[in-house]
Simulated assay, not measured.
Amino acid sequence: MSQLLAIFVTVFLAELGDKTQLATVLFASERQTSPLFVFIAASGALILSTALAVLLGTAAERWLGFLPLKLLAGIGFILVGLFTLAEHFRASTA
Rank of each mutant, 00 (worst) to 15 (best):
G76A: 09
L55C: 11
L46P: 00
Q3I: 10
L79H: 12
A60R: 01
S49W: 00
S43W: 00
L69D: 01
L52K: 10
A73L: 14
V38W: 00
L71Q: 10
S92H: 09
S92R: 15
S92F: 10
L46C: 05
L4E: 15
E15V: 09
H88N: 09
F39C: 02
F39D: 04
F12H: 09
F8N: 03
L82H: 12
A41M: 09
F66W: 15
L26R: 11
G74K: 03
A45I: 06
L52W: 07
P68A: 03
A60V: 02
A91S: 15
L64N: 03
P68M: 01
F27P: 01
A94L: 15
F66Y: 08
Q21S: 06
M1N: 09
F83A: 12
D18N: 08
I7R: 14
F83C: 12
F77Y: 10
F89K: 15
I78H: 05
F83I: 14
T24R: 04
D18M: 04
V11Q: 11
A53R: 11
K19R: 14
A23H: 10
A59D: 04
A60T: 14
A45C: 05
A14E: 04
F89C: 04
I7A: 12
I75C: 07
A59R: 14
A60Q: 05
S29C: 05
R90H: 15
L69W: 08
S92M: 14
S92D: 13
Q32E: 14
P68V: 01
T24E: 01
K70A: 13
S43P: 00
A86C: 06
A53G: 06
T33S: 03
A6K: 12
S34L: 04
T24S: 02
R62G: 01
M1D: 13
K70G: 15
L36F: 01
E15I: 06
L36C: 04
L36R: 14
P35N: 05
Q21L: 03
R62E: 02
F89Y: 15
P68C: 02
L55I: 11
G81H: 07
H88P: 06
L64H: 04
L79F: 10
R31T: 05
L52S: 08
G81Y: 15
G57N: 06
A53V: 08
F66M: 07
P68T: 05
S49R: 12
H88E: 05
Q21I: 02
I47L: 13
M1E: 09
I7P: 00
I75R: 14
F89V: 10
A23W: 06
G65R: 04
T93C: 06
L85V: 14
L48W: 08
L46I: 05
V11W: 08
A60N: 07
F37V: 08
M1Q: 11
G76V: 10
G81C: 07
P68L: 00
